[in-house]
Design a protein around this nucleic acid. Structure first.
Length: 576
DNA sequence: GCCGTTTTCGGCCCGACTGTTTTCAGTCG
């Protein structure tokens, strides 16, 4: 989803890197970094903004606004071209090596003429780093190791992998004598869609037993650092885990700090400074005499800065600070608000469990209603027929004991022209229908856009399933004008799915935030292909919260009667 | 280069760990 904002943000970040590498003003580099983050998180497409409007973006002033519009109009940013001419492209690769930053990359380039990762590896092997001041034997080893890690392509982990590792570490550390509290923080607490490393926070008066237990956990393969307040390890999952131990009295400040995001925290510290305070993991202190103001709970820290407590999924500096200051934070949807799941598969198609088992598993989770939505007949590999579908409906009615209402649905296939399976008479027999794209991903943008809009306009399509069809790390999102699709979904009364499957998480959070401005409704679904997949709902809720969704916008928080009216209204409207 | 309930100039987020070096710079989160 490299839209204009992402492209501009990447260029501004590159510019910041180049300033650092060429030894330019550090403050200038930091401004470009801040501006890059602000542009990436800005809800409006920057290519539609004029100079004045661009300057409304935080950290974007006259100079950066000018560079952005140059890029929008010419496809070039001359300032960056100039710096690129001075710095070989490979040097930017160098600073991706862990433990190697812009300062020493500059030294390597100027003194040894190294301008790529392979050249660095060669120089290390030839012992040429020894002649440099500040590069000892350990540094050499660390760089060698860093290059290996970079080559192993430290891909980010999906949520369940990181979550189970985090829960294991937290459970082990909580059992260590002297541990007062322990939890995970960082991007996992914010429910980011993928996790680069796991942050764990503990409170204890004496940190040593916790640090020792941590570095000796069975899944630890390498101890990266080991200190009294912070230690880092690499695990057999390839994921790095950082542990911070603080005194119980500063728990809240530390939790706030280690939850991030970095951009959110920087904003908070700036607010603190203006109020004559400094904020760190040890609490909020008065700048003049260093006296502690608050530290015990997150709520106190935010309150003292004049803010309500901000839920972790919002802490990305994407407007939550402004909303909090204005008293306009959304009341986010919670897992408890969901009354049921509207997307699941049995072994009639590509699920693994028979209908009765999947229904029993859903009932165990306390759902009030549950939709079975096996694939329809246009996906040949599923071998679906009218007879099989009708037989399943009959079986489903018999399993319906009333304690959890069973809905009979289907996941229709959106064909190349936007058409779906079955005629309207057959579709009228379903309680609700999802429709999704499963093939022809490479169509031109205009055609794909028309295809999704046409699906929204179909009277029997109630939910657009996994709307971008992306698979994290494997398949990019469809190239579609989603603004047009969101408008069509809102106009036609078609809900957008938030698919909770960990490698989908589709819609992604930025798109949710954007779609809700059109007045769209959403459905947080599991797309379960096995009973255990029903537990993925927590990840869908996490992404929905990151997209600023409230319960009112999510159709499967509604009572069944309202959900049925939502379906009926669209069918009626089409036949008037 | 940006920004302002102490500022239109003079600041700019904070602290831990490592490694190399005798007091600190670089990197990271």
């Amino acid at each position: 989803m490299a839209g204009p904002n992402e492209q501009v943000a990447a260029l501004l970040q590159e510019y910041a890197d180049l300033i650092s590498i060429t030894g330019g003003e550090e403050f200038k580099a930091r401004v470009y970094e801040r501006a890059a983050r602000a542009v990436a998180g800005y809800p409006t497409d920057v290519s539609t903004l004029d100079q004045d409007e661009l300057q409304q973006i935080p950290s974007v002033g006259a100079s950066i606004a000018e560079k952005i519009s140059e890029y929008v109009h010419t496809g070039q940013m001359p300032a960056i071209e100039q710096l690129r001419a001075q710095v070989p492209a490979g040097i930017r690769e160098l600073i991706k090596i862990p433990t190697l930053g812009p300062k020493r990359a500059k030294v390597l380039h100027e003194q040894l003429g190294i301008s790529s990762v392979p050249e660095l590896a060669e120089a290390i092997d030839a012992g040429r780093l020894a002649e440099l001041r500040g590069f000892g034997r350990r540094t050499e080893e660390n760089l060698r190791h860093g290059i290996e890690l970079l080559r192993a392509a430290g891909q980010r982990a999906l949520l369940p992998v990181a979550m189970s590792l985090a829960e294991e570490v937290v459970a082990a550390l909580s059992a260590v004598p002297g541990c007062v509290r322990c939890t995970y923080a960082g991007s996992l607490r914010r429910m980011q869609e993928t996790i680069g490393d796991v942050d764990v926070l503990a409170a204890a008066d004496d940190s040593a037993p916790l640090m020792d237990a941590f570095t000796r956990l069975p899944r630890v393969t390498e101890v990266i650092s080991h200190g009294p307040t912070r230690s880092s390890v690499r695990t057999d999952a390839g994921l790095q885990v950082d542990l911070r131990v603080v005194e119980p009295a500063v728990w809240g400040a530390a939790l706030q700090y280690f939850t991030g995001s970095k951009a959110h925290n920087i904003r908070l510290r700036e607010i603190a400074l203006r109020a004559g305070l400094t904020l760190s993991e040890y609490g909020l202190h008065r700048t003049d005499d260093g006296a502690l103001v608050v530290a015990e709970t997150e709520e106190e820290v935010y309150a003292r800065l004049g803010l309500p407590w901000i839920p972790p999924p919002l802490r990305e500096d994407r407007g939550e600070i402004e909303a909090a200051l204005a008293g306009e934070l959304p009341e986010l949807v919670r897992w408890e608000d969901l009354r049921g799941d509207l997307h699941s598969h049995t072994d009639l198609t590509d699920g693994v469990a028979p209908l009765s088992e999947l229904v029993a598993a859903a009932r165990d989770r306390g759902f009030r209603y549950f939709a079975i939505t096996d694939h329809a007949k246009d996906l040949p590999m599923q071998r679906m027929t009218d007879e099989k579908m009708l037989a399943q409906r009959e079986q489903l009615r018999q399993l319906d004991t009333g304690r959890m209402v069973l809905l009979h649905g289907t996941e229709l296939n959106i064909g190349p022209e936007g058409e779906v399976d079955w005629d309207e008479d057959f579709l009228a027999g379903f309680d609700l229908c999802i429709a999704s794209v499963h093939s022809h991903f490479q169509q031109p943008r205009e055609q794909l856009t028309r295809r999704l809009i046409r699906a929204c306009e179909h009277p029997y399509v109630n939910v657009l399933g996994h709307p971008t069809t992306r698979q994290i790390g494997r398949r990019p999102p469809l190239d579609v004008d989603y603004d047009a699709v969101f408008e069509a979904a809102a106009r036609t009364g078609t809900a957008l799915e938030i698919n909770s499957y960990p490698d989908r998480l589709d819609l992604p959070d930025e798109w949710i935030q954007r779609a809700r401005r059109y007045g769209v409704r959403f459905a947080i679904n599991t797309d379960a292909h096995a009973p255990t997949h029903l537990d993925y709902l927590r990840y869908g809720v996490g992404i929905a919260r990151r997209g600023w969704l409230t319960a009112a916008e999510v159709i499967n928080t509604w009572p069944l009667s309202r959900l049925r009216k939502f379906v009926a209204a669209k069918r009626r409207k089409a036949h008037r």
